[in-house]
């Protein structure tokens, strides 16, 4: 039951996902390879969260296929995700992390130390014993990040991880993302914050209505977008 030596690359091969007669993802072909963070951008409802769920293995494509390190149906032992709206277990902040450590099969002897380190990392050591559901939205989002990191993942999916954070906390989380990425953990992140995308992205994937409209190295994407949709989106225009 060990994870394959490599979760990467994650390959989408003409992945289409329909639900309730709606096409949410449309013929996505995409390779997520080791390296700097891949950032997903696109308007509301363009399919970013859905793409992350498929990449995590929580949703199966209706058509097409997805592979992790060349294999199909790889359980998410070495993948972790922070959802757009994370659910907090009805336990203390520290107990939420311990739960994730236990689920990941981390030896019990390490739980106390790792829990302390992770809470420290996301700046929540002072609320360790507080009920997680009583934490503020931003604190919950940071706790969800710590809980995801508790799994010691090879790939980390982040769905708008700074959406409800204040500027200081945002900087803190961006620093964590950079540090995580430097430890060779692949980060795949959806964001609406174009400044954040510029600061963190190695490459950018832009989605619109479930399709990839443009993908490229971050620098060239932001400086010289190739498609009308990308130019309009970066200029802050409404996409229809």
């Amino acid at each position: 039951m060990r994870a394959p030596s490599s979760e990467l690359p994650i390959e989408f091969d003409h992945v289409t996902l329909t639900a309730g007669g709606v096409t949410i993802l449309d013929q996505i072909t995409l390779t997520l390879a080791p390296g700097a963070p891949t950032v997903l951008i696109g308007p509301n409802g363009s399919g970013k969260s859905t793409l992350l769920r498929v990449a995590m293995g929580l949703l199966s494509p209706s058509r097409g296929r997805i592979t992790w390190g060349g294999l199909e149906d790889v359980p998410p032992l070495k993948r972790a995700i922070v959802f757009q709206r994370p659910a907090m277990l009805r336990r203390s902040a520290a107990a939420n992390i311990r739960f994730a450590l236990r689920a990941a099969g981390i030896p019990r002897a390490e739980h106390a130390r790792r829990t302390g380190e992770l809470l420290e990392l996301v700046g929540l050591a002072h609320v360790a014993d507080r009920a997680a559901r009583r934490l503020s939205g931003g604190e919950q989002q940071r706790l969800a990040l710590a809980r995801a990191l508790a799994r010691d993942p090879a790939v980390l999916f982040l769905d708008e991880p700074t959406a409800s954070l204040d500027p200081v906390a945002t900087k803190g989380v961006e620093d964590i993302i950079r540090a995580v990425s430097e430890r060779n953990i692949k980060v795949v992140m959806a964001t609406h914050d174009l400044g954040e995308a510029r600061r963190l992205a190695g490459d950018v994937v832009m989605l619109h209505r479930g399709r990839i409209v443009e993908r490229g190295v971050a620098v060239s994407f932001f400086d010289a977008p190739q498609t009308g949709e990308a130019r309009a989106f970066l200029a802050g225009e409404l996409l229809i």
Binding site: P76, F83, A103, R151
Partner: peptide
Amino acid sequence: IEYRDELSAMNLGPLGRVAA
């Protein structure tokens, strides 16, 4: 319904889910 995504993402088996 509230926990499904999180528990699935933690790769918890049926017994672990029920216990949690």
